[in-house]
Nucleic acid binder design. Structure first.
Length: 283
DNA sequence: CAATCTACCGCAATTACCTCA
DNA sequence: AATGAGGTAATTGCGGTAGAT
């Protein structure tokens, strides 16, 4: 279901959850998302939360009801208590349904996930969220310490949530499922970012080490060249200095003419940093 | 059985609000 | 009081997947 598709690449250990989304289809089909002047949310027999009351929500026409791209109008109402705020405002209230089809889907999904807020309340909330002064201030919920702690704890157990877990957590936190979902998304992103930073630091260190090694080898090469000029041309090589390539098993340091050009011809190096551990690379 | 449609989900990128120095 | 930076909630758009037709 795509839950774990990126688990390996992101370094996360995701739990494969059994999705119930197939049954979430309270859809009023539309061919053009932007043509949604009227959003109807209706229950179906496949509704995953049968204990809830069916709801019917009507949205206003888009004409004369301009909604900005970011749908900021929906969060107009704000109060000091984040919980109260989360109850009063709906990040995906019906207003959102007028912008994109995607949001419409979200809204419908929300409508079955979060039925404790009934349709009428949400409509009135939407109306109360409507701008009276024309400003579109997107107010931001601030999670309490308790909420953050619980979310964090839950994230440690599983970095992704199936719909049931999301619903349960949202109920427990007195948040909307969508808010829980968003929190987990952002949390995963932060984790990934942090991991990327760690990886970046590691690669930087590797780079520094390799640069040092390169510098050292260059210096050594210069010394050897100088040494070669100072010494006789056909100087017999001590057997102890011969090394064998572990990959191709050729004996280094023994060329046809006995000259000393092979990288394996010299005494073993005190240290060689090879991050790729590929002995054949030297051949 | 293949093609198409639809709904859903996760992610990346971005926006925008809020807090704090 | 003003302001810039950082944290983060929220939005948007896209791609992938699965079920239905």
């Amino acid at each position: 279901m795509g839950l774990d598709q990126d688990a390996n690449s992101s370094g996360l250990h995701l739990v494969l959850g059994l999705s119930l989304t197939a049954s979430v289809k309270e859809t009023a089909p539309s061919t053009k998302p932007d043509d949604h002047h009227l959003c109807v949310i209706k229950p179906t027999p496949t509704k995953p939360y049968p204990s809830k009351e069916p709801s019917l929500t009507l949205g206003l026409s888009g004409k004369g009801y301009h909604v900005p791209r970011n749908n900021v109008a929906i969060n107009k109402v704000y109060c000091e208590d984040p919980l109260e705020f989360s109850r009063q405002t709906s990040p995906h209230s019906v207003v959102s349904s007028f912008s994109t089809g995607r949001v419409i889907k979200r809204e419908r999904d929300l409508s079955c996930e979060d039925m404790e807020v009934d349709a009428e309340e949400r409509v009135s909330s939407r109306v109360s969220d409507e701008d009276e002064d024309g400003t579109n201030a997107r107010k931001k919920l601030r999670l309490t310490k308790e909420q953050s702690a619980l979310l964090e704890e839950s994230f440690k157990q599983h970095s992704t949530l199936n719909p049931k877990q999301k619903q349960a957590l949202a109920r427990q936190l007195n948040l909307r499922p969508r808010q829980v979902e968003v929190w987990f998304q952002n949390r995963r992103a932060r984790t990934k970012l942090k991991q990327t930073e760690v990886d970046c630091e590691f690669l930087k260190k590797c780079c520094e080490t390799l640069t040092d090694e390169n510098r050292r080898l260059k210096k050594e090469l210069q010394e050897l060249k100088a040494l070669k000029l100072a010494q006789p041309l056909y100087m017999p090589m001590p057997a102890a200095t011969l090394t064998m390539c572990p990959s191709c098993e050729r004996l280094g340091g023994v060329s046809d003419n006995g000259s000393n050009k092979s990288p394996f011809s010299m005494a073993p190096k005190p240290h060689f940093y090879n991050p790729f551990a590929n002995p054949s690379a030297a051949c």
